[in-house]
């Protein structure tokens, strides 16, 4: 009786998981390793060595790594400031930094066009200050800015959560034992908030690496990321095999980044178990 009950409970989502998570991934692998005549081939994977695609992949890796590091550097001090505020104030001010996410994200990225354009808001401010205008839009830097802007809350939230859970007595103990500010920060605060840092990094890096919207809106059609190439294969070229092959390559990078992060996370558990 109890067994039957559990099967009724778990049946629907197990079927769902199989149909819409497992089979779809198997299909990507299938399409990625076959040609349009269903013959086994490696040519879809090999498409990554095409100069344009390879350049897009490198640019994606570079910009998403940059955006992740800058997000971390920007968000960590902010999270510390917020976490050390009085209880009520902290919650309200943190909400203030999350609220922008309620505006449609495509529109928010699009709005940066107006800020970065040749006659845009930023250049108008610059000319008002008698400074030379800058070429901002349709550059890799504009895309990196878009990534930082769009994913900063994803970095901020886990860091804030980790820092509010941090036992500040431990920090004070480090000071009492003669550690200076720097030592305390790098040897106590950072290791203790490592789970937050790790989840923040993955939450920024993966979407930044695979975006095609930000590069579409802020890179014009001049700067292509790997996401744009895959999107084109599916929506314009109609070559699903090539698109799947490139997606598989992309997934390898996602898996590598996750494995690296997992490694650091387990390291941290070692530290906290000693404490």
């Amino acid at each position: 009786m109890k067994k039957k009950h559990n099967a009724l409970l778990s049946g629907p989502y197990l079927v769902w998981t199989a149909a819409f998570i497992v089979i779809p991934l198997i299909l990507i692998v299938y399409y990625g390793f076959t040609d349009e005549n269903h013959h086994l081939t490696l040519s879809n994977i090999a498409k990554i060595t095409d100069p344009v695609t390879l350049k897009a992949l490198f640019l994606s890796l570079l910009l998403s790594a940059m955006a992740t590091v800058i997000c971390l550097i920007l968000a960590y001090p902010l999270a510390m400031i917020l976490a050390r505020m009085k209880n009520g104030a902290s919650a309200i001010i943190t909400t203030v930094f999350i609220i922008p996410m309620w505006m449609n994200s495509l529109l928010r990225i699009f709005a940066w066009q107006t800020l970065l354009e040749r006659n845009g808001v930023i250049n108008q401010v610059l000319s008002f200050l008698h400074l030379p205008p800058q070429h901002l839009i349709n550059t890799p830097a504009a895309i990196a800015l878009g990534m930082i802007y769009d994913y900063l809350p994803f970095m901020l939230l886990p860091l804030y959560n980790a820092l509010t859970k941090l036992d500040w007595n431990v920090v004070n103990a480090a000071y009492d034992l003669g550690a200076n500010r720097r030592q305390t920060f790098f040897k106590v605060i950072i290791p203790l908030t490592m789970p937050g840092i790790v989840s923040g990094i993955t939450m920024v890096f993966v979407p930044a690496l695979t975006t095609f919207v930000i590069s579409d809106f802020l890179g014009g059609s001049k700067v292509l990321l790997i996401g744009n190439i895959i999107d084109q294969q599916f929506t314009q070229v109609g070559n699903w095999n090539a698109g799947s092959g490139l997606s598989l390559v992309l997934m390898i990078f996602i898996l590598i980044s996750m494995a690296v992060m997992q490694h650091y996370e387990s390291d941290d558990e070692g530290v906290s178990s000693i404490l």
Binding site: A19, F20, I23, P24, L25, L27, I28, Y31, T202, V206, P207, L209, T210, F212, G227, I230, D231, F234, W240, G243, S244, S247, L250, M251, I254, M258
Partner: peptide, 15 residues
């Protein structure tokens, strides 16, 4: 939740 949205989207389209 962990996978890239673009891969999830493509895989669902294929299925």
């Amino acid at each position: 939740m962990l996978n890239a949205d673009i891969v999830t989207g493509i895989s669902l389209m294929l299925v």
